[in-house]
């Protein structure tokens, strides 16, 4: 089976700083990759490159068989949730759904189903600016799924939002994956790794793949190491 995403030796620098230093990985249909790393590790950089928003320095990225440097076609089957709020602020929730559907060239017929699944009925008439973080994230995800994408890229999917919204989002994410979609989503708190299929640990510009348990163990062992060291220093 050909991979949906195929990244080879991807490099990105900002100024003189190397953010991504020769990343390679593949993702097949039905896979869910959790992108883990601290602040500034390069999660957003990587996701924006995959979404075809940013240029990159070198390497090759193929999505759905297209070289993303040369083609825009893959964007038809792509959904993106950004870390910073990027919905249209002066529009209401419903207008956002409608407008983004048009931008994506998708029909508006999906909207009703998505509204129901993400439980957005009550806030459709409100300006997106005033929405709570959790509701906003649900709306963002609904917008990202409007064009029935095969790949979902989500930046900071469930950080710091209310449990109810977390639950809804993870439920929909699972149904998206089981429907044959593949997803990369980033998080910065280790406990979320259980919700992923595998963890891509982004550190020093490279990506290491672990199973969720391995990632959790690695994190725990690092914590222990730091505790030990500080204990020695205190003594």
């Amino acid at each position: 089976m050909t991979p949906l995403i195929n990244v080879k030796d991807l490099k990105q620098t900002i100024g003189k700083q190397k953010i991504l230093n020769g990343l390679s990985f593949m993702l097949s249909a039905g896979e869910c990759l959790g992108l883990f790393g601290g602040r500034g590790a390069g999660k957003t950089t990587l996701l924006h490159i995959l979404a075809g928003i940013d240029r990159f320095k070198s390497g090759s990225v193929e999505i759905l068989g297209c070289d993303i440097r040369k083609s825009e076609a893959f964007k038809k089957r792509l959904g993106l949730i950004t870390q910073e709020r990027s919905l249209f602020r002066d529009l209401r929730a419903y207008e956002n759904l409608e407008f983004i559907a048009v931008l994506k060239g998708a029909g508006t017929e999906n909207i009703t189903a998505l509204v129901k699944r993400f439980e957005l009925n009550n806030i459709l008439g409100e300006p997106v600016n005033t929405l709570d973080a959790g509701v906003y994230q649900r709306l963002s995800m609904a917008c990202a799924l409007l064009n029935k994408p095969r790949i979902l890229l989500a930046d900071d999917l469930i950080n710091d939002i209310d449990p109810r919204s977390q639950h809804i989002i993870l439920r929909e994410l699972n149904s998206f994956i089981s429907g044959g979609g593949s997803c990369i989503w980033s998080f910065s708190r280790i406990e979320f790794c259980r919700a992923t299929g595998k963890v891509g640990w982004l550190e020093n510009g490279t990506l290491s793949l672990y199973s969720p348990q391995e990632a959790q163990e690695l994190w725990d062992s690092r914590l222990r190491l730091i505790e030990q060291q500080s204990g020695e220093n205190d003594a």
């Binding site: 825009e72 993106l80 919905l87 249209f88 060239g105």
Partner: peptide
């Protein structure tokens, strides 16, 4: 400035 430009960039719109 409002970060919405990403919506245009990530869409397949020519």
């Amino acid at each position: 400035e409002k970060n919405c430009w990403i919506q245009f960039l990530s869409s397949p719109l020519p």
